[in-house]
């Protein structure tokens, strides 16, 4: 967007309002230059924080794996949580294990659940890396958008410049036609 000022109708306040509006429109939905620079200067962890990601995400998950994942070994399905009585119960289960194996084979299930527990850990790691990569890409997109905007501004500026250079020819013609006009010092008659 560009705007034109009619020469006989200059109002500094109106021009400043237009300048501010133009800046606002350019900035809409984008970071300001200062914000972009600030983000670029920060470490990625801080960026993740800014996006409400926990930058210690992977370390937290690894240190407290019991809160979200499970351990599954060959003995897990025979364990009990009932203290001393539980120990007795586990003993009885162990004794009856051969009998149980006559009815069904628990080994494939134990292997599958154990494998799933390992996979959960890998998924967490993968998710973390993806989040990091998406954040990097997001910043790159923002940067590209900003560059695009700068180029657009430059293009508009060149267009305005071209237009005024064309108009200057007209002014010089006027100045030649009216050599005494201007009402000020000698400098006042030189529009360039």
């Amino acid at each position: 967007m560009s705007f034109e000022i009619k020469s006989g109708d200059v109002d500094v306040d109106a021009i400043m309002r237009m300048i501010r509006k133009r800046i606002e429109e350019k900035k809409q939905g984008l970071y300001t230059d200062e914000e972009i620079r600030e983000i670029a200067e920060h470490r990625l962890d801080a960026v993740l924080d800014a996006h409400e990601f926990n930058s210690d995400f992977i370390a937290d998950l690894r240190s407290q794996e019991g809160r979200w994942n499970y351990h599954f070994g060959p003995e897990t399905i025979y364990r009990s949580s009932r203290g001393g009585v539980g120990g007795l119960l586990e003993g009885v289960r162990r004794l009856l294990r051969p009998l149980q194996k006559l009815v069904w084979n628990p080994n494939p299930m134990i292997a599958a659940l154990s494998r799933q527990s390992d996979l959960n850990t890998y998924y967490v790691h993968l998710l973390h890396n993806l989040a990091v990569e998406i954040t990097k890409l997001n910043l790159e997109v923002q940067d590209l958008k900003n560059r695009n905007l700068q180029l657009q501004g430059r293009l508009e500026f060149q267009a305005r410049r071209e237009k005024t250079l064309e108009e200057m020819v007209v002014y010089r013609d006027d100045a030649v036609a009216k050599p005494g006009s201007g009402g000020g010092g000698a400098a006042g008659n030189d529009p360039a």
């Binding site: 000022i5 200059v10 300048i19 005024t164 000020g184």
Partner: peptide, 16 residues
């Protein structure tokens, strides 16, 4: 940018 590109504006502001 506006002042640089617009001699008519410069002229009018200068006269003011």
């Amino acid at each position: 940018a506006l002042l640089e590109a617009d001699p008519a504006l410069r002229l009018q502001l200068g006269r003011n």
